[in-house]
């Protein structure tokens, strides 16, 4: 095991814990909007930690930039998707007259 492997194991391991927590929230939370909280927040943090961990294995600066960009695109995507799904599943008392 090289010196870089330890942070990789710790960070990706922590990231997987957050993915599991996100999945647990998806199953256990009572309604669509609460479930979206679990998916957006826990999974983004999980992905961020996995990305950070994998960076320790990266060879040069381009892979690091690529990993960072992937993370940014994933969080932007999930922030937008969460708003759209939240909007599409509004409870009746919040969208009665859309004018």
């Amino acid at each position: 095991m090289s010196a870089a492997d330890l942070p990789t194991v710790v960070l990706t391991g922590a990231g997987l814990v957050f993915f599991c927590a996100g999945a647990a929230g998806m199953v256990r939370f009572p309604d669509t909007h609460s479930r979206l909280h679990a998916l957006t927040k826990a999974d983004n943090l999980g992905l961020g930690l996995v990305v950070l961990g994998v960076m320790f294995q990266a060879d040069g600066v381009v892979p690091v930039l690529k990993l960072t960009l992937i993370w940014i695109l994933a969080i932007v995507g999930s922030a937008i998707a969460a708003q759209i799904i939240a909007r599409a599943t509004l409870p009746a008392d919040l969208h009665e007259d859309d004018d």
Partner: peptide, 29 residues
């Protein structure tokens, strides 16, 4: 508004479902 909604959808405990009549609809845990 979209950027603020995205920001608050990633911050602790809040999720934004756009606006209606110039008011943000914010879901909280």
């Amino acid at each position: 508004r979209v950027v603020l909604g995205g920001e608050f959808s990633l911050l602790p405990g809040t999720l934004v479902a756009g606006t209606r009549k110039d008011r943000f609809l914010v879901h909280v845990l």
